[in-house]
């Protein structure tokens, strides 16, 4: 492997915000709304967008108080986003079942509130934090990103979230923190798909620390101006837009800073098909299908396939992270 020097987190990026515990009795909905409102007030152009009205009944995570956020157009693509329906009825979320429709059909009773996240490993401030604690100091941004699944379909999604780096910095990772490992909730009662062992549950994903600290990497809580619906990974998920979708882990309950590369779920299940890096790369095919093109969802029955772009179109921003790395070997 090419020798890679991991960038140290600049001290300026580390925020010394004291992390307080929110009263557990408060519902996530109220707390989220309150903190989002507060965060919104602190930024330049807060607004919320009109709620789509003709859609299916909102899930339990849809708050009557919509999240407040500002649009980050500088970090958004100009392509038109897919509809709420196209984003929330066709999902790979094996915890709810293997079919694309299972997540939207079987996630109704999932409880994303109350929610807490365990922070562990190589950091000065490990511990268990409520979701409210994690989100409170930050302003929500809307970023329209391309999303490319390893199955050669794609869509464009307006996510709501916070740069992951801003959150991670508060836990003060130390110099041994070379990777970040994320874990999804393990609860076969809520996740019927976890009763069959197609994957070694719980789902685990990981990033190199420089990938985790990249400004594009988004800790995500909403889409289309609403809180995340259960089938999209409520209440907290990762979005890494230059990697195949399976890296963008959902319903996160644990974040661990590690010195060694984490063992990730798909890589464990089929190492020759799914690498740790999983950067979108039209030149490196999946062993069983080509990655050169993708089907953009929403194009209808005769919608044309479009060319897949290196790093999903984010090469200018992220290619330098992999300088000297053989992307054919480290797929």
């Amino acid at each position: 492997m090419a020798k890679y020097i991991y960038p140290k987190i600049p001290p300026s990026a580390i925020e010394a915000a004291p992390i307080e515990l929110a009263p557990q009795s408060r519902s996530r909905r109220e707390a989220l709304a309150a903190l989002a409102a507060g965060a919104g007030a602190a930024c330049l152009a807060p607004h919320s967008i009109a709620q789509p009205t003709s859609l299916r009944a909102p899930s339990s995570t849809s708050s009557p108080t919509p999240p407040r956020f500002r649009r980050n157009t500088a970090m958004s693509v100009s392509e038109a986003p897919n509809s709420w329906e196209e984003i929330t009825t066709y999902n790979n979320f094996y915890e709810f079942g293997l079919d694309k429709g299972d997540p939207s059909e079987r996630s109704g009773s999932f409880k994303p509130t109350p929610w807490s996240v365990e922070i562990a490993g190589e950091a000065a401030k490990p511990g268990r934090y409520t979701l409210e604690d994690i989100l409170r100091p930050h302003a929500l941004e809307e970023r329209i990103y391309r999303f490319r699944c390893v199955e050669a379909w794609s869509r464009v999604v307006p996510w709501l979230g916070i740069p992951l780096r801003d959150v991670l910095a508060r836990f003060e990772p130390n110099s041994r923190a070379k990777y970040v490992e994320f874990t999804t909730l393990l609860d076969p009662k809520q996740f019927p798909g976890q009763r069959s062992r197609v994957i070694d549950w719980p789902y685990v994903e990981g990033l190199r620390i420089d990938e985790a600290m990249h400004p594009l990497t988004l800790l995500t809580v909403g889409l289309h101006g609403r809180w995340l619906p259960n089938q999209s990974g409520a209440p907290l998920r990762l979005i890494v837009p230059w990697k195949y979708g399976f890296k963008s882990i959902k319903s996160i309950v644990k974040i661990r800073f590690t010195e060694r590369q984490p063992a990730t779920s798909w890589n464990k299940a089929a190492p020759d098909e799914y690498g740790f890096f999983a950067n979108v790369n039209p030149a490196v095919d999946h062993p069983r299908w080509s990655q050169a093109k993708e089907r953009r969802l929403g194009g209808g029955l005769f919608g044309a396939r479009v060319d897949t772009l290196p790093f999903n179109g984010y090469a200018n921003e992220v290619a330098s992270l992999y300088r000297g790395l053989d992307l054919r070997r480290f797929y």
């Binding site: 009825t89 066709y90 379909w153 029955l301």
Partner: peptide
């Protein structure tokens, strides 16, 4: 309905 990826469904 065939959903957002109709050709795959067919």
């Amino acid at each position: 309905s065939l959903g957002p990826n109709p050709s795959r469904e067919l």
